[in-house]
Structure formats: structure tokens, C-alpha cells
Design a protein around this nucleic acid. Sequence first.
DNA 1: CAGTTGATGTCAGTTACTGACATCGACGCT
DNA 2: AGCGTCGATGTCAGTAACTGACATCAACTG
Lengths: 195, 195
Amino acid sequence: MGRWEPNTRERLAKAALDLYGERGFERTTVAEIAKSAGLTERTFFRHYADKREVLFSGAIEFEQLFARAVADAPPSAAPIDALASGLDAICAVFEERRDFARKRQAVISATAELRERELIKLASLAAALTETLRGRGVPSTTAALTAETGVAVFKVAFERWITGDEARPLGRLARESLAELKAVAVGGNAPASEV
Amino acid sequence: MGRWEPNTRERLAKAALDLYGERGFERTTVAEIAKSAGLTERTFFRHYADKREVLFSGAIEFEQLFARAVADAPPSAAPIDALASGLDAICAVFEERRDFARKRQAVISATAELRERELIKLASLAAALTETLRGRGVPSTTAALTAETGVAVFKVAFERWITGDEARPLGRLARESLAELKAVAVGGNAPASEV
DNA sequence: CAGTTGATGTCAGTTACTGACATCGACGCT
DNA sequence: AGCGTCGATGTCAGTAACTGACATCAACTG
């Protein structure tokens, strides 16, 4: 057995999410999180760059999973279709963790600082997708627009999935949102979502 | 004459932009900005909520201008076309201030903290546009997707306008990006931008 | 078993940001 | 003119995020 309890990072992340949920982000100090995990403040900052980052440790895998699925789409697929298979891949991951996602999202939505961090993670995702699409031979601007579109579709679908009493699976909502975006772009006049 | 020099806010904003440009955001203290404007640190925080906000004082007008143009589009216009007239309106404003925009953007792009703040301003813009579109009778999800799309188009066009040696006016780049997004959504296979 | 390593602890320091109170020209009222 | 209020700023003390330097000590290595 090691000198210390194992899973330091995970213990910190759990303690942080719990405390942010109970007292709110701003009224929780890093010292409290660390103490709650049986560690010191200094150790917290060795594992997470700042007080917000502790809620976003999964962002890298999320981004990689999405990008890989886009990269692995058949070479013949149009950019928007490659994107769609990326959406499928990540939605599947979220599907099993709805409770966790909900709890985490409630904390993030409640605090502007955390929303900022979330947005920069999504921007990083868009940048990664842009690169991946370029790797598929898509021109820069097209790639950027496709990537931003994909992130927008995910945001809208995720929002619908996580709030209220929406019972449909995330993947389905994402597919629907993507279809609706296509309709919007074509310029039909305010079509209602019909599913 | 007042007891103090006038235009406190503007003096602070100018001092901040200059210092961020010279030394970088992180190596500039708020005390330095305030001193450079002939004021104290405490006064800085009375005018700007935090060290980043000083670069974003125009965000409200930006948002309002965009939203108003969308609201004022002919009622018969499809959501995507109402959005396009909003894009026209804000692009016109930027057109005359390219040097300022460039300097400011260089500072923002150099620092993650500032990029975060920029992103939340854009998210706020998207939310405002969503509301405006809903006010035009567009259903929620359609409105959200259209708004996010509009922000994405602006981001891509602005990026092209501000970087490198792009000589075309912002409004034109925005129009082109919007057209390209439509093509992407339809699903053509990686069309190059043709203008 | 001695030396090294790596994760943690300890401590002092900087700086963003906040609350409470003091200051004093401008301005309106009499 | 004199007086009281007001509003923008200054002063000062305090909290908490974050950082750098150094100490500790179990586990591993040869």
C-alpha cells in the first residue's frame, strides 16, 4: 500500500462536485475541498490548474473521442456526415451517465465562471474538430464552419436532454437538431421540430 | 470642472489595453492600470467587475445592435435571413475600427482567461438572438440553432478578417461564410469557398 | 542497505477582489 | 452667501486564489 490513499485526483473531483453542489461554487474554498478529500490546498493545485478545472478533467477524452469518430468516418462521407458520426459517438457515452451529467451541469450553469470554462472547452473541441476535418481534406473555412455547427448542435441537444422532463435519448435529440439545422440553413420559414 | 479628470472609464480602458499589449495581461496588475490612469485600484473595480471586463465594455451595445437588426427585419423573412441582416449591421460597425479591433484581438487571443470572457460574451449574444428570434415567432429549438449558427458565422468571418492579409470587408466575408454554411448543411462534399 | 524518486506537506508571498468608512467638490435649496 | 446632501473617489484592512521554495518520507532501485 502506498504512503497515501490512492485516487487522489478522483477524490478531489468528487469532493469538489459535492461541495459546489451543496454550498455553491463561490462559497466553497479550495482549502475546504482539499480537507474534505483528506489533502492540503497545495496538493489540489498540483492536480488541477485552478478551482474550476476540477470539474473538467474528462474534457480531453471527450474531445478525443469525438475527433476520432469524425476521423474514422468513411472517406467518402461529406463533412456534415462525418460530423454526425462524431455526435453519435459522444452521445452514446453520455447516455449512461445522465444523473452525473445532470448534477454537474446544475453546478456549472449556476456560476458564470464555470460557464466560461465550459465554453472554452467547447471552443477547444471545435478547434480539434476543425483540424480533424482538415485532415480529411476539407478546406479551412468549411472545416471551421462545420465544426462550429457540430458544437452548436451538441449544445442545443444537450440542453434539451439535461433540462426538464425530456425523455428521449441524447443521440436522438442530436440527430433531430442536426436535421433541423439543415432545414434552417436552407431557409424555410420557421419550421417546427416535428418529432 | 469636476473634482476629477473626466472620462474615468475610458481612461481606464485605454490604459488597460495599452498595458496588456505591452507587458501582457498576466504581468499587468490592476494597480498599475489604475495608476497609469491616475486613479486607484479600488476605483478600477468600481467601474469594471474584474480585470478582464475592462476589454469588453462595448459588448452590450454590440449585442443590442445585432439583436435590434434581427428584430427589425421584415416579418416575412425566414430566420436565417433575419440573422443575415443582423450580421450586416454589426459588420458595418467594425469596418471602421479595424486597427483597434486588431490590437484588442491580439491581446485577447494571447490569454486564455480573456478568450474565456470573449466566449461568454458570444454566448450571451447567442442567447439574446435566440430570444429575439422567438419574439419573431420562431420555435425555441429553431431559434437557438439559428442564433448559434449566426454566432459561428461571425466568429469565422471575424477571424478571417482580423488575421493575415485578408483585404475583403468583414461584411462580405460574413456573407460568404453564411453561404458556405448553407452549402455545408446541405451536405455537398467539401466544397471550396469560391470567391 | 544507501541513494534516488515522487507525491505530499509546510510556509511565505503576490495579487485579484470586497466591505466599511473617510473625503470633498458640485449642486440645489433657502 | 451659507448649508446639507450626493456621488465619485481615496484609504485601509481583510479574504482567498494561486505560486515558488524547501522539507518529508514511503517505495523503489541497484
